[in-house]
Write a protein that binds this DNA or RNA. Structure first.
Lengths: 160, 160
DNA sequence: TGTAGATAATTGTTCGCGCATACATCCGCA
DNA sequence: TGCGGATGTATGCGCGAACAATTATCTACA
């Protein structure tokens, strides 16, 4: 037990436990609709993007997947009819992944339960004030560890 | 854009970005010592356990790996001489994974940089008060999503 | 005491993902 | 206009992890 109980190690361990713990509880709802966490993350990012579409590379960056990884995910989702690939008019190398109508319906079907899950295992556990402070703290950290995400977002981007 | 911009979705997305963002920044330090994140998590959990040892199943639970997963991880670490398997006296089905001297040295070598990384990308970004509140909130959530971990933590705290 | 069911760990199989590479296309510059 | 490097996506390959099945051992109960 030399320096293995440093409070910063404990702090990061706690963050890890919480993130993985919450994630695990969300899993069942994805599974009911035949989706993995990665699949769901891909679909919802498309849904939240203008035109329900993103270039493959941008989608890779947002999902923290490699470009080859996103190629395979989109292959899978395309095979199931949940997304479509559209050629980019201005750059023939690029292609867009576009949420299909079926994909949108699939998302809408599981969304209520998903939101309820988040409420049950995360946001609903905290008072509104505490939640707001928690999110503010997360934004501070994100500003440092994900500078690009903050820059791209039109959201508040004040560093601490 | 039906319900795809629910603030609870955004909240969980933020948590995800922060956790994965911090994790990515910690990666290089593990890699310098030839360890993956899972390897490191396994070793440090052993280091922080009484007797620097845990039963395979408990290790699996703590690392969020399947029992087969932990078998292979310990295989790997044992091959590299970082952990040892010890038979359990009272239950011949069970075996303990024990941190070896070499494993301890490996951990101690990367620990200073690892703690510094956590400081740089997480704890050091927040004022002491804000950090304390953040950790309190994390504990609230953990109490719900990881009830067993909380119970076990008390035992560890007693022994520490 | 003997049998059935539970439990601990390991092994076989499958699949997802990253890395390196390949290929097509775009852009800068002479 | 034509060439060289940069960029966007897709493919070959290997590793790592989950699921299911297997083996060994423990425990409860008749």
């Amino acid at each position: 037990m030399d320096g293995f109980d440093d409070p910063r190690l404990t702090a990061f361990g706690l963050l890890t436990e919480v993130y993985s713990g919450v994630s695990e509880h969300l899993h069942a709802t994805y599974a009911e609709e035949g989706l993995s966490e990665v699949d769901f993350g891909t679909l919802i990012r498309l849904a939240r993007s203008p035109g329900q579409s993103l270039r493959m590379g941008d989608l890779a960056a947002q999902t923290s997947l490699s470009t080859s990884g996103i190629t395979r995910v989109v292959d899978r989702l395309e095979r199931e009819g949940l997304v479509e690939r559209h050629a980019c008019a201005s750059d023939r190398r690029a292609s867009y992944a576009v949420l299909s109508e079926a994909g949108k319906e699939r998302l809408e079907r599981l969304l209520p339960q998903h939101v309820k899950d988040i409420e049950t295992y995360f946001t609903g556990l905290l008072t509104p004030d505490r939640l707001e402070e928690f999110l503010n703290t997360l934004r501070i950290i994100r500003g440092v560890v994900r500078p690009c995400a903050t820059a791209g977002a039109d959201e508040v981007a004040q560093l601490g």
